[in-house]
Computed example of a mutant assay.
Amino acid sequence: MKIKNYEIDNFCSSSNMNTPAILIYGEDYGLKNERVSLITKNYLNNSKNIIDLDVKSIISDPEILTTELKSISLLADKKVVRIRDANDKISSIIENNIFFNPKECLLILISESLSPRSKLRLIFEKHKEAVIIPCYSDDAKNIINIIDNIFKKENIKIDINAKKLLASYLGVDRLVTKSEIEKAILYSGKTKELSINDVSSFLIDQAAINIDKLYDLTLTGHIKQAYKVISKLQNEGIPAIQILRSFTRQLQNLYNIKQNILLKNDINFVIDNFKPPIYFKRKDNIRSQILKWSFSMIQDALKLLENAEINCKKARSSPNIITKHTIINISLLLKKAH
């Protein structure tokens, strides 16, 4: 069952979802994660009764999914079962389970872009109760609305030209968009005002340039040079969380670039038209990363970054050491793959 675009946000925010399963698919990694988190939170009413399954396990033993859907904990009245990277290989297994899924359990599938002929997509579109939600990159109008809504909430004033400049760098990924807007809010300081010069300044901030350099060196296998750059950043007082989150945004961008190449089959066109725009001196590095890093490797690196941020926030942790170890481990992913 399809949901109209203007109804999606209300559906995701509802605590009364009368559906056995939801398929969330598309090219916007951040928007997919945002909607999965929102749906899960509202359905479970903040409980943590969540089971994550992978496609390989389901293919090798379909009963795993059936068992998880039918078994409800005595300590919780609802349950969410999530399957990431869902594809047509498990379409028949999913179809068989949707019809018998109990009301106390919600099945959520997260997938990449699916063609109109996709078996999995057709199952959800034709089903009377199962829901399908597309997640495509925000257009110019949506980006402006997101900026306006967040700035209004934070009482930030921005002139029209500054807003247009900021919007031109956003849109490829919802998580990246919101993260960049949060940076703009911090940059506004106590005045809570942003001019076009302010926006220009933080977009080319030197710390960001050095983090870009760190990222490029790490993902192209130059670990010794990367170690020198991260030491320099830390000596300059750049917080570990800022480095980790910048790395996360960069990897999400790489993930989206690779997805766009699959759709358009033109690497140069995708790189030249990507948002936020890629600085011309970095384009060769990005091309190299596209060839060397698979989707699964990017996801593994994102998981390392997620765990690193969690560990950095723990009492008595050493954020700088954690960050250095994480950068090394990300570089080792590339070494192991080649």
Rank of each mutant, 00 (worst) to 15 (best):
M297H: 03
D300Q: 09
F274H: 06
Y279P: 10
S296T: 08
K292Q: 08
I290A: 13
Y279H: 07
K281Q: 05
F274T: 05
F274S: 08
K292Y: 13
Y279W: 03
K281R: 07
F280D: 02
K283H: 07
S288T: 15
F295I: 09
P277N: 02
I298D: 06
K283M: 06
F274R: 09
N285P: 07
Y279F: 15
Q289K: 06
Y279S: 03
I271P: 01
Q299K: 06
I298E: 03
R287V: 15
W293A: 13
W293C: 12
K275I: 11
S288G: 07
K283S: 09
I290D: 05
K275C: 09
S294V: 15
P277F: 12
P276D: 01
Q299I: 13
I278R: 06
K292E: 06
K281L: 01
K292R: 09
S296Q: 12
P276A: 00
Q289Y: 03
W293Y: 12
F274P: 07
F295K: 14
F274E: 05
D300H: 13
Q289H: 08
F295E: 02
R287K: 15
R287D: 10
S294R: 13
Y279D: 01
S294H: 14
Q299P: 05
I278H: 05
P276H: 00
I298M: 09
K283Q: 07
I278E: 01
R282A: 14
I278P: 05
Q299R: 05
I271M: 12
I298G: 10
I278L: 05
D272Q: 13
Q289G: 05
R282H: 04
D300S: 08
S288Q: 10
I271V: 03
D272T: 13
L291H: 13
F295Q: 06
N273S: 06
W293Q: 10
Y279M: 01
R282W: 11
R282E: 03
K292F: 03
P276N: 01
F274V: 11
K292L: 12
D300I: 06
F280V: 05
K281G: 01
I278G: 08
P277K: 10
K292V: 09
S288H: 04
I298Y: 08
M297T: 01
K281S: 02
D272H: 15
Q289C: 11
I271E: 00
I278M: 02
R287W: 06
P276S: 00
F295G: 02
S288E: 09
P276M: 08
I290R: 06
Y279I: 04
R287E: 09
K275M: 14
K283R: 09
M297N: 12
P276I: 00
K281W: 04
Q289F: 01
S296L: 08
D272G: 08
Q299M: 12
S296D: 11
L291T: 03
F280L: 11
L291N: 07
K281M: 02
I298A: 12
I286N: 04
Q299D: 10
K281V: 02
K283E: 05
I278W: 04
N273I: 08
I286V: 14
D272C: 13
Q299A: 12
I298T: 10
I290F: 14
